[in-house]
Design a protein around this nucleic acid. Structure first.
Lengths: 204, 204
DNA sequence: CCTTGCTTCGACCGACCGGTCGGGCGAAAG
DNA sequence: CTTTCGCCCGACCGGTCGGTCGAAGCAAGG
């Protein structure tokens, strides 16, 4: 039950919590590189500098690590999307900011997103169901934002709304494959470029 | 060395070739569902209705099956892209047809593309290098097509050419995640919708 | 000093992996 | 009939998997 300050003035975190976070970071690195199915818990343990039994002192199963990845990504995605919609000055700016932020987050957490995009089928049905539901909720937020802008401007899209939204999300998500952190454009700037392509059809 | 007609009047194919194709189809189904690393050769054998030793009578290694998937996809992608560029009536039509075809092929071979998109890191460097080079060549064909259209019309894009091309390919490739074969739009029609979003910025 | 409780790990478990081996099968050739 | 040969598989190989067990190390409290 002992708690201890982290030394950086941040919120309290027990020793066990710190280790758990280090393990999760290691798991993200290993899972994204080797793939969840092919990665072993030995790999993860070695990455943190622990033995496998010690790793299992902090983590219940390999599956728990994968679930934690999805939780983190979905929490942050949904939170920021709702914040953007609530705070945007115009409906058009909401759509634009949603795309920019999606690209930024994806590019700056490529390991995390790589796992989310690749390992959907690695979770058993019972665990996948709530995760899928939250992802659908995220997509609904984006969809509603586009629809609100359409309604406000009286325009109509030359294709189904769902097709447009999925095209936008696809273009944004796919940056996890090609974004170059050493390139000339930052993640945020790249997001603005991508949004520029996708918003063209909204402005006519 | 015995050969036999396939009975359907098509090109000759030995019994062994037929079996090899059935095995490859099974491998595609299994690898795309479970992931290459997590899928076992027992799974593949069971899917074809053979025992594992019999499977190995036709296939050298598990890795060979994965390589065959990449070969098939890259062969077809490059071939059709070059054909489209060579036969398009205008540069704009070339770009449009490239996107439409990319979406169509992706949606109609989702299992194949799922493997290509997810298992890039499952190949050892020596095998991945030539595959990566051919993928880059495919991207170069698309890039050149866009550049030709830009040059012809005298327009300039508000973002780097590479960013635009990757955005287009991302939107097209991502359809492997959300295309619904039972939906109201065929793969080809969906491609036309997606191209409609992406070409907006080219037409101003 | 001893106890307590958290952290760590060497050694191990049964299961399953990719891949192999030696032999059994049936049909065609002699 | 026997031989041959492509096709097929039960049983097995060394190795690794996710996960467990029992014990050692060690700081804090008494």
């Amino acid at each position: 039950m002992a708690t201890r300050g982290t030394g950086a003035g941040s919120a309290i975190g027990s020793r066990a919590d710190e280790q758990r976070q280090r393990i999760l970071d290691a798991a993200v690195a290993v899972f994204s590189r080797r793939g969840y199915g092919a990665a072993s818990m030995n790999d993860v343990a070695a990455q943190v500098g622990l033995s496998k039994p010690t790793l299992y002192h902090y983590v219940r199963t390999k599956q728990d690590l994968l679930v934690a990845v999805y939780e983190e990504v979905l929490d942050e995605s949904l939170r920021s999307a709702r914040e953007i919609v609530a705070g945007a000055p115009t409906t058009r700016e909401a759509v634009r900011a949603l795309i920019v932020e999606r690209v930024r987050y994806t590019c700056e957490h490529r390991d995390l997103l790589t796992i989310c995009f690749h390992e959907e089928s690695a979770l058993p049905e019972e665990l996948a169901a709530p995760i899928l539901e939250r992802r659908r909720e995220f997509e609904r937020v984006v969809r509603d934002a586009v629809e609100a802008h359409l309604h406000e401007t009286g325009r109509t899209l030359p294709m189904a709304l769902g097709v447009y939204v999925n095209t936008c999300l696809g273009a944004a998500n796919w940056t996890y494959k090609w974004f170059d952190p050493a390139g000339p454009r930052s993640a945020r700037e790249l997001g603005e470029d991508v949004a520029g392509v996708l918003l063209g059809i909204l402005d006519g």
